[in-house]
């Protein structure tokens, strides 16, 4: 059923007339023109489609758009502020924590939610938190290093 749905997307209000059963992933990737969230499996297994909804990592391929009504969505495109990359993005670049890059948005956003809840994660916390994000290229070692670096950076930024 086509219905009006409102939410904030990367800090900006959005209002759509859309079938509420459609999955957020497709609406983001087409109507909203944000292709940073990727289709990897369509069934919640890979994490490539991860976005943040009210602070929680959500697999957008499994989230009917009506479930985000009134909520705040953050996608990879919204992580950069005023031309400045988020420390997690900086850390991924520094550690070259990507190869083909197809899992990268999902990795970064999952890490973002993880660090919001647990600003000083151990390596084990990071492995556990990212366990269900798949990467075929085998960037795992670098992703762990990047998240550790980002955590340290963010802590320093808070202290400053």
């Amino acid at each position: 059923m086509v219905e009006p749905i409102q939410f904030t997307l990367n800090g900006k209000p959005v209002r759509l007339e859309v079938d509420g059963e459609r999955m957020l992933l497709w609406v983001l990737r087409t109507e909203l023109g944000l292709t940073g969230a990727k289709y990897g499996c369509g069934e919640g297994f890979c994490g490539a489609c991860t976005v943040i909804v009210d602070g929680e990592p959500v697999r957008s391929c499994q989230a009917p758009i009506k479930t985000v009504r009134g909520k705040g969505i953050l996608t990879i495109e919204g992580l950069e502020r005023d031309g400045k990359l988020h420390p997690i993005q900086e850390a991924f670049i520094k550690h070259e924590a990507m190869q083909c890059g197809f899992c990268t948005s999902g990795m970064i956003l999952t890490a973002y939610a993880l660090l919001a809840k647990n600003p000083r994660p151990t390596e084990k916390d990071i492995r556990d938190g990212l366990e269900d994000n798949l990467c075929r290229c085998g960037t795992h070692t670098r992703v762990i290093q990047a998240v550790l670096t980002a955590a340290a950076e963010m802590k320093r930024a808070v202290q400053r």
Binding site: L34, T35, G36, A37, T75, I76, E77, L79, E80, L85, Q89, F92, I93, E96, M98, G101, T104, S105, I108
Partner: peptide, 9 residues
């Protein structure tokens, strides 16, 4: 390609 891939671009 790191920056483009880390920003979703």
């Amino acid at each position: 390609d790191a920056r483009e891939k880390a920003t979703g671009r």
